[in-house]
Amino acid sequence: MNTLRIVASLAVAVLATVGGYYTSSHYTSTSHLAVASDASNTTEAAVTTSKAGAVDELWKAPLQNAAGTSQGIAAFKGKPIVLNFWASWCGPCVREMPSLAVLQREYAKKGITFIGVGVDSEKNVNEFLQKIPVGYPIYIAGFGGADLARSFGNNAGALPYTVVIDAKGQVRSTKLGEVDQKELKATLDAL
């Protein structure tokens, strides 16, 4: 019975990874959204408004840190952050985390904090962090993290999903799929 559960779990994980990769590879070209500061265009104004609601939701979200302690992200309010939604079973997420850790070290000098939001279980996140430690805060949202990512425009529900929020709480960019380092650096340098 346990073998059957393990095989079924592996099959689900493989399908989810393949689905996430397929979605990210087919939507990457349209997934980068830079929110312009000129809100005269009603479409841009609507995007800005909905993203602002997502940022407010983020500050109120009941999350826990990797140690299992309830701890919201509101402590980062007023600071620029890179919010990365990921899961331990997501191949593209795992591939990009070392590069995000390098960028975190580089941009920490500029006051920019990278934050990982695990759309996964506490057990899986901690097992992953034992193998691949990262130098930025990791929070656990469980599978409810997908709803939080969706509020930032991740309608596909795929991972990884990265959101850059400036110190004023404005969403500066979103990215479905693995981050492009040059693209992310350009966004961060403009903060």
Score class of each variant (00 low, 15 high):
Gly135Met: 10
Arg105Gln: 07
Ala13Gln: 02
Leu4His: 11
Thr187Ile: 09
Glu183Trp: 14
Phe76Ser: 01
Ala46Gly: 07
Ser25Cys: 02
Ala11Thr: 13
Pro80Tyr: 07
Ile73Phe: 01
Arg150Gln: 11
Pro62Asn: 04
Leu103Ile: 14
Thr17Gly: 04
Ala46His: 09
Ala16Gln: 02
Tyr136Val: 15
Thr28Asn: 04
Thr113Arg: 14
Val35Trp: 06
Val179Leu: 06
Ala167Gln: 06
Ala87Cys: 08
Ser99Val: 15
Ser25Leu: 00
Ala36Arg: 06
Asn2Trp: 10
Cys90Ile: 14
Ala8Glu: 08
Gly72Ser: 11
Val125Arg: 03
Leu15Glu: 01
Gln71Val: 15
Glu57Arg: 13
Thr3Gln: 12
Ser37Cys: 09
Ile132Glu: 14
Pro133Lys: 02
Pro137Met: 13
Asn65Met: 10
Pro80Asp: 03
Ala108Leu: 00
Thr48Glu: 01
Thr17Trp: 01
Glu122Val: 09
Ala34Glu: 07
Ile6Asn: 06
Asn155Trp: 11
Leu129Val: 12
Lys123Pro: 00
Gly169His: 04
Ala66Pro: 00
Val14Tyr: 13
Leu148Trp: 12
Ala54Pro: 00
Thr3His: 09
Gly72Val: 15
Ser29Glu: 09
Tyr139Ile: 10
Phe152Asn: 04
Gly118Ile: 15
Thr174Ser: 03
Gln181Asp: 12
Ser31Arg: 00
Val35Ala: 09
Gln71Ile: 15
Gln170Phe: 01
Gly135Arg: 09
Val47Gly: 01
Ser70His: 09
Asn2Arg: 11
Asn154Pro: 06
Thr23Met: 11
Phe85Cys: 04
Thr43Val: 13
Trp89Phe: 08
Glu96Arg: 08
Leu176Pro: 02
Ser40Ile: 07
Tyr107Asp: 01
Ala54Met: 02
Leu100Asp: 07
Thr17Arg: 01
Val12Ser: 10
Tyr107Thr: 02
Tyr21Phe: 15
Asp166Ile: 08
Tyr161Asn: 04
Ser29Phe: 13
Val119Gln: 03
Leu191Ser: 07
Tyr22Gln: 02
Gln104Gly: 09
Val18His: 03
Ala61Val: 14
Lys79Arg: 13
